[in-house]
Each structure stands twice: as C-alpha cells, then as structure tokens.
C-alpha cells in the first residue's frame, strides 16, 4: 500500500519536472515554435500506448497457454490503460495538426491505423461484455486480442514504410532525421515518465480487476448457498405438510 503511494508520488513529481523541461528547457523549434512542444507528450503517449498493447499481446498469449485468470486480468487492464494513451495521442495529434497542416485530420496510414487500433481495442472491450462465462470470455478475447495486435507493428512502421502526411520518424530514423540533443533528452525523459505512468495505471487496474473477479466468485458462492437454503426450506415445508 505504502509503496504504491510512493510510486504515485514519484510519478507526480516527475510530471512536474517534465512539464518544466518541456516548456523551459527544450529549445524553441525553428518553424513551428510553441505548438511543437506538444510532441513531447504526443509521441511519448504513443510509445506508452504501444508498450501497453505489447503487454496485452503478451498476456493474451500467456493466457491461451497457461489458462490462469491472472493473465486475463492483466490483458483487460492493459487494454483499458492503452486505450487511454491512444486517446491522448488521437486528441493531441489534431491539436498539433490544425495550426501546422491547416487541417485537423488526414487519412494517411499512420493516422488511419491509429484510429482503427483505437476502435479495435474498444471492440475488444465490447466483445468482453457479450460473453458471460469468465473462462470463455478470457479465451475468446485473447484470440481477438492477438489478431488486433498484428496491426500495432504495422502502425509503428507505417511512417517508415509509406509516405505519410504524419511527420517521418525523428528518432532512430536514419541520418539527417535527428533532433536537437536537448530535445532528445527532454523527449526521452517524457517517454520514460509516460511508460512509468502506464505501468502504475496497469498495476492499479489489475488490482481492481482481481478484486472484481474475487467479488464475482463470492457472489456466485453466496447465490448458490442461498439457493440450496431456500430449496432445503421448501423441502422441510413440504415434509412438514405431508407429515
């Protein structure tokens, strides 16, 4: 309990530092100026979202192999947290695009795939609501999740493979694609922070899912007991009447 608060506090402190770094340490971009600073949160959220879907994929495969409920808890937790980060990406993107491109949205591979992945992980959650049996639900959503994940590497690579409206990669993008060294430092601090936040949220959501699962199990037991009790009472009543 104490450790979690400590973890959360450290992340909050790091966020304060990141906010300072993004606005006061990172140099001004030559053509885009202040609006470019959204990049530090946009791209780092994108990384955190993809890392989150990596956890989903890992948990899906682990569930199908091991059949332990904990992998399903991890999968659903990571899906929800990733969705939050994808949403940040999809909101900050157009905010940046409107002044820079003059339009909010462009249907290139990067943007389309990101939106489709967001929709697909929503579908994952919808699918889960429609399967009642917990084991079936876990297996079915694991199969679907693995298929959905196939789009994630394509989304990551799309700005390298296709000519997109979305900017080309500025990190690991080959020669002449680099950022100012200070920008790189600020960006990596932000993305490390977003990853930590993602992990914290997944852990918290996982705890919640485990508790929810335990509560569901308990409710089933209680309902079962109540049913046998009422059946017994009914039988006693009948024997009393008959006797």
């Amino acid at each position: 309990m104490k450790n979690r608060w400590l973890f959360a506090l450290i992340i909050a402190a790091l966020f304060a530092f990141a906010g300072y770094a993004v606005f006061f340490i990172a140099p001004d971009e030559a053509t885009m100026h202040a609006i470019q600073r959204i990049f530090y949160f946009h791209a780092s959220s994108g990384w955190a979202a993809m890392e989150g879907t990596g956890i989903v994929f890992f948990a899906n495969v682990a569930y199908l192999r091991k059949r332990q409920p904990k992998w399903d808890w991890l999968a659903v937790s990571a899906v929800e947290v990733s969705l939050a980060f994808w949403s940040v990406v999809l909101v900050t993107g157009p905010i940046w695009a409107h002044p820079v491109w003059g339009i909010w949205w462009a249907w290139d591979w990067r943007l389309t795939l990101t939106l489709v992945l967001w929709i697909l992980y929503v579908c994952y959650l919808v699918l889960r609501t429609l399967v009642a049996d917990p084991e079936r639900r876990a297996a079915v959503s694991a199969i679907f999740g693995i298929f959905v994940f196939l789009g994630v590497p394509l989304d990551y690579l799309s700005i390298r493979i296709f000519r997109t409206q979305h900017p080309q990669p500025v990190l690991f993008g080959g020669p002449n694609s680099g950022l100012d060294p200070t920008m790189v430092k600020v960006f990596f601090s932000c993305s490390a922070l977003m990853t930590l936040l993602m992990i914290l949220l997944v852990i918290e959501r996982y705890r919640l899912e485990r508790l929810r699962y335990e509560a569901e199990e308990m409710r089933l037991v209680i309902e079962e007991r109540a049913e046998t009790k009422s059946q017994n009472r009914e039988m006693q009543r009948r024997t009393a009447l008959g006797g």
Binding site: T112, L113, V116, L130, F147, G151
Partner: peptide, 13 residues
C-alpha cells in the same frame, strides 16, 4: 451484430 464489429476494422489494411 458482433461479427461485423470485430471483422470490418481488422480488415482495414
């Protein structure tokens, strides 16, 4: 209703 929901977005590429 579910099948188109799952299938159509996956087939976007």
């Amino acid at each position: 209703v579910l099948l188109p929901l799952l299938l159509l977005p996956v087939l976007v590429p």
